[in-house]
C-alpha cells in the first residue's frame, strides 16, 4: 500500500502563507486547552522586524548622569 508522507522540505511562504502555531501544551503546567491558531505569516514577519528593531534600543545618552543629578534634588 502506498503511504503518503508529510514532506520534510521547508514550506515556501509564497505557497503556504500561513502557519499553524500550537497552543502551549498541558505538559507545561497549564491545563486549559486552547486550540491552535493559524498565524498570518506576512503580519508576523512585519511584527518580528519591528520587535527586532525595538530590541536594539538603548536608554538615552546621559541617562545615568541625569539620574545621579536627580538624587541631589530629592
Amino acid at each position: 500500500m502506498m503511504m503518503h508522507a508529510e514532506s520534510l522540505e521547508p514550506r515556501d511562504p509564497a505557497v503556504a502563507p500561513e502557519a499553524v502555531r500550537e497552543a502551549p501544551s498541558a505538559e507545561t503546567g497549564d491545563r486549559e486547552v486552547v486550540p491552535p491558531f493559524v498565524e498570518h505569516v506576512a503580519l508576523w514577519s512585519a511584527i518580528d522586524a519591528e520587535t527586532a528593531r525595538m530590541r536594539t534600543m538603548t536608554a538615552p545618552a546621559g541617562f545615568a548622569a541625569r539620574v545621579l543629578a536627580g538624587l541631589d534634588r530629592r
Binding site: R21, A23, P24, T28, G29, D30, E32, V34, F37, E39, W44
Partner: peptide, 13 residues
C-alpha cells in the same frame, strides 16, 4: 511558571 507565561504570550499573539 513557564507554562503560565507561554500561555500569556500565546494569547497575546
Amino acid at each position: 511558571t513557564v507554562g503560565a507565561l507561554k500561555m500569556r504570550v500565546h494569547r497575546a499573539r
